[in-house]
Design a protein around this nucleic acid. Structure first.
Lengths: 246, 246
DNA sequence: ATAGTTATTCTCATAATGAGATTATCTGGA
DNA sequence: TCCAGATAATCTCATTATGAGAATAACTAT
């Protein structure tokens, strides 16, 4: 930076730009009782008071985007910000918020089975909602949520993301349950088993097995933990959806 | 919206939120002379005067994000905004711009062989740069550019994106050239040919052939046009990159 | 003990891939 | 004009991946 640039910056007026607010919104997913759930908060303030929305809020000065996403998740819901979180997309259609021009950077978070969230400052309530049968959401949050779900479904294919939905150790059946739940399909148990074990680094054996069989019978299952793969190769593809190809 | 909400909005002060500016930045890619090129502008204003940067700028009131990206591309470079454009990611680290808090929503654009760009208002110059051997860029644009390149490489695998880099009609060899250029690898001509023709909807025959053989010999090649597929199934995967898997 | 359930492993047909070879067609230069 | 080299388009063949179904064995609850 030269002298002229320093001078320029000293006389720079940030007000010269149109007022825009930036928010982060979080699509937080978990599996409860074999059903995919999304974390929603009931708005306690205008606009859209009383309507369900994604947890989120305005970024603070000096706060990085992912930080803001984790903070909002923790603040509005009491959930520990240790979940895996990644950027989803940004939404900035001019009238998406009636207050002013708001650009929202959305994040996607995954977490294993978690306790009930508790409502934070701005929220009247916070709760996990089943991903099918959702209420109408505030702002354009239905669209953001749909994008988040599709991203999650897609990432299951080529990353070990599914292992973030299960505990430290898990059985192949539990892992299959995650895929079936998120994709909303049922998978061939034998083929899934073969596939998971054949992808290098997806899971590694713990040498242990479950204490007992399933509640409805069956032998005790071997336990695995997540491996060191960051990408699944070859990928574990969803059954072909002809309608989405064309 | 009820009466109380209208009242609330009427008394709402946008200045209550910290001043943040939102920009769009565009990673525009094309292939020139068999080499992948990126569109860069030489900054004509502080900060980073004289340094190369991605084309971009502040969004305008009432302007949607993709619109802004197309406008910047057209404004700063004279390129027709008819190219395919999609959102890439957003960047908002607090000090990424020395003037003020700036959140940048980046877009990725693809275009077939195009004429030289011309510098626009804010730019001292605009030019296509080879994607290997790039200058040091302003702000965090090197990072954005890297993310854009990786996205493009990845989308080649499972979408017909490569067809946007070639003309209306093209030969299988030209299409293979796109993959080889963007991925930076050489592909088995026979297998590529078989694969492209076997993926439903990727390309369709025009019934025509090139006027003459290649400059260095060979028979006249059949011509194809892009098909109606939006996803390639099965996908056309890059050769496995062991180092990226773990 | 027994029926029903589940984990794990196999079999077998089919599809997809990787590597190499073949054939025919064209260009440019001898 | 003829030939060497280049390229398009096919084909072969071994290997790997997938989809569907079945077999086996270990467990639960009744």
């Amino acid at each position: 930076m030269d002298e002229n640039e320093s001078e320029f910056l000293a006389g720079y007026d940030p007000r010269a730009f149109p007022a825009v607010a930036v928010t982060v919104d979080v699509v937080a997913l978990t599996i409860l009782g074999g059903v995919l759930h999304v974390l929603l908060v009931e708005r306690g303030q205008y606009p859209h008071v009383g309507r369900w929305a994604l947890p989120g809020g305005f970024i603070r000065p000096g706060e990085d985007l992912p930080e803001a996403a984790k903070r909002e998740l923790a603040e509005e819901t009491g959930l520990a910000p240790r979940a895996h979180i990644e950027q989803l997309a940004s939404y900035g259609t001019p009238d998406r918020d009636p207050r002013m021009r708001v650009v929202s950077v959305s994040y996607l978070a995954f977490a294993p089975d978690l306790p009930d969230p508790k409502a934070g400052s701005d929220a009247a309530d916070a709760a996990w909602h089943p991903a099918n049968r959702l209420p109408e959401l505030a702002f354009d949050h239905s669209r953001i949520l749909a994008d988040g779900l599709e991203r999650a479904r897609s990432k299951l294919e080529y990353t070990p993301l599914a292992t973030t939905f299960v505990g430290e150790t898990f059985t192949i059946s539990e892992l299959r349950g995650v895929y079936e739940t998120v994709w909303g399909v049922s998978l061939h148990a034998g083929n899934f088993h073969r596939k998971v074990l054949s992808v290098p680094g997806f899971v590694e054996s713990t040498g242990e097995a479950t204490e007992s069989g399933g509640t409805r019978g069956g032998p005790r299952a071997k336990l695995y933990r997540a491996g060191d793969a960051r990408l699944l190769h070859p990928a574990l593809l969803r059954p072909a959806r002809e309608e989405e190809v064309r």
